[in-house]
Nucleic acid binder design. Structure first.
Lengths: 138, 138
DNA sequence: CATAAATCCTATAAAAACTATAGGCTATTA
DNA sequence: TAATAGCCTATAGTTTTTATAGGATTTATG
């Protein structure tokens, strides 16, 4: 399961995308609208900003906004950023690989093979579907 | 990611399947062969037994053995038993569904839709692939 | 320039989940 | 009846997740 952090991030990004025409959006507005703890959300948006996905403006009239169009933000990017590996096993992870400590040869491990396929099927969706694909408006 | 518990369970099941001709197998043998803490493994095998996947025999000459042929044990069964939900979000889980607290209507939520597809793609593999498919021998 | 608004940043706390261990109990075999 | 091996439950240690706190910094505006 995705962590709350990642789930909140998706809902926040959706809100930002659906209100992109209204200039910077307040953290507090998103928190209220999406029923998320404001302080927790603050940390999440900061991480998204530091990763270059969001921009922000301080002071009155400030808030957060998308740095790219929704179409340019694959869902896999958000998950990897906040949750880490998408694969079900470390030994089939593309970005967070770790050797299997329970089997002797990954090359002939059937579990490795099947989980690799699960990873591929999952990534086919999560790398191609973007923020744009999860919006209600437009 | 799957928990260690589930990962260990898969490796133990593989060992049991590949030595099914040798009668009951000792926990200690599996633990040593697969590099797993023996006491931790004990709990896992017990859970698999209580779920009807494994059988056991006590006393000298005892041990664990499969209650069904490898072909009859889908990978999804093991994951759900030890790890819980396979879906990435509670709101798209078939067996552990929970309503989304951050969106107003799941029926029109794009995130719900995409994650439902991820679940389907994952389950297509995990429900059809069985213990037999992850064995080295045979 | 002073003030209020809003994000930035880091630390920490609280809770939950995960991983592992302990130790006595029970059944079985020889 | 002694040794073997699983059964069962509790608990401990660690890590991760979730959430909160509070002051620092930047910006807009009157």
């Amino acid at each position: 399961m995705l962590s709350k952090k990642t789930q909140y991030a998706f809902h926040a990004l959706i809100h930002l995308a659906e209100h992109a025409d209204k200039g910077p959006i307040l953290i507090s507005e998103i928190a209220q609208e999406k029923n998320i703890s404001i302080k927790f959300l603050e940390n999440i948006l900061l991480e998204l900003k530091n990763a270059g996905i969001l921009g922000s403006k301080k002071g009155k009239g400030g808030g957060y906004y998308l740095m790219r169009t929704p179409k340019e933000i694959p869902l896999a990017r958000i998950i990897r950023l906040l949750d880490g590996p998408i694969a079900l096993l470390p030994c089939v992870s593309l970005n967070y690989y770790e050797r299997c400590e329970n089997c002797k040869d990954e090359a002939v491990c059937g579990l490795n093979d099947v989980m690799g396929r699960v990873r591929d099927a999952t990534l086919k969706l999560l790398e191609n579907k973007t923020l744009k694909d999860i919006l209600t408006k437009d």
